[in-house]
């Protein structure tokens, strides 16, 4: 019974999220969010690369490593940002947070539902960026040699993991004001530095490498690269020895861990927010 209700909340929120994002059919907004922003972000790295090494053909394995890591990282930013943004937006702009909050639906499922639509939209940006990399920059991703099984499996588990982390952050967001942007920007930034996104974690000092090995995103990105370019693996990344099966297992275990952690933090954040009366606050200056 409760399950059915939660499912309904989830689907309803997914629908609501999609309605809110439905202006995606607007060509201008599609260009902004699914093309201009992600491709420019990738091009910054491409130009850094070209400036230092003279062209993208030089050290092409390293180039593919950087480009793919950056492309899939869009998911991390979008999902973390998306989940916390739901809270921020509902609270400050629409001022409906309190309305949803006092309605009897499970807020937890509401957020997951809203996150679903964000994942869909992030997927468009990732695909556009990848297509740009393949066709404009010659990254040798090939639909026939790709490891589709690994791709789909890791994508699913990876998303579950990211949403869990996002919800943990949402719990913290309950307590903060202007910084809801800051928190996910910060966590995403941490992941960007420590998870071997645009450079191998072997570049980091020893403590930074240890941190990198502790975050599931590191393995997730490695798995995505392996799925897309099974034949072309960069040496000296600190992860090249790990078998695919272990990558998946590590991901699954950490996803489960973050799932329970997120429930804990979310409940705590929710409780503290109510105690501090921050459910319906607004804060501009």
């Amino acid at each position: 019974m409760a399950m059915k209700e939660n499912l309904r909340t989830l689907l309803g929120a997914g629908w609501l999220g999609w309605q809110m994002e439905a202006n995606w059919t607007d060509p201008f907004l599609f260009l902004v969010y699914s093309v201009a922003k992600p491709v420019s972000g990738a091009l910054i790295l491409v130009f850094m690369y070209i400036v230092i090494l003279g062209g993208v053909a030089a050290q092409s394995t390293a180039f593919a490593y950087i480009f793919l890591g950056n492309a899939f990282f869009i998911y991390v930013g979008q999902v973390l940002f998306g989940v916390t943004w739901v809270i921020h937006e509902d609270r400050e702009h629409f001022q409906t947070l309190k309305l949803i909050y006092i309605s009897p639906i499970s807020f937890y499922y509401y957020i997951i539902g809203r996150a679903g639509s964000k994942i869909l939209i992030a997927t468009i940006a990732v695909v556009v960026t990848l297509l740009f990399g393949v066709f404009a920059l010659g990254i040798p991703v090939d639909a026939f040699t790709m490891d589709w099984g690994l791709l789909i499996l890791c994508l699913t588990v990876g998303m579950a993991c990211l949403v869990s982390i996002g919800i943990a952050l949402a719990g913290i967001t309950f307590l903060t004001a202007k910084h809801s942007g800051g928190i996910n920007e910060g966590i995403a930034g941490l992941f960007y530095v420590f998870c071997g996104v645009v450079f191998p974690i072997t570049q980091l000092p020893a403590w930074g490498q240890s941190l990198g090995y502790a975050i599931p995103v590191t393995y997730w990105l490695e798995a995505m690269r392996k799925a897309l370019l099974p034949a072309q693996q960069l040496q000296g990344t600190g992860l090249q020895g790990i078998e695919n099966i272990w990558l998946v297992a590590l991901l699954a275990v950490s996803a489960l861990f973050f799932y329970f952690l997120s429930i804990l933090i979310f409940r705590l954040g929710d409780y503290l927010a109510r105690r501090a009366g921050k459910i319906d606050m607004t804060t501009a200056y």
Binding site: M48, Y49, I52, I66, V198, P200, L204
Partner: peptide
Amino acid sequence: AAYVFVYKYL
């Protein structure tokens, strides 16, 4: 910091 490491790596 991420971009600094990219330059270091390159």
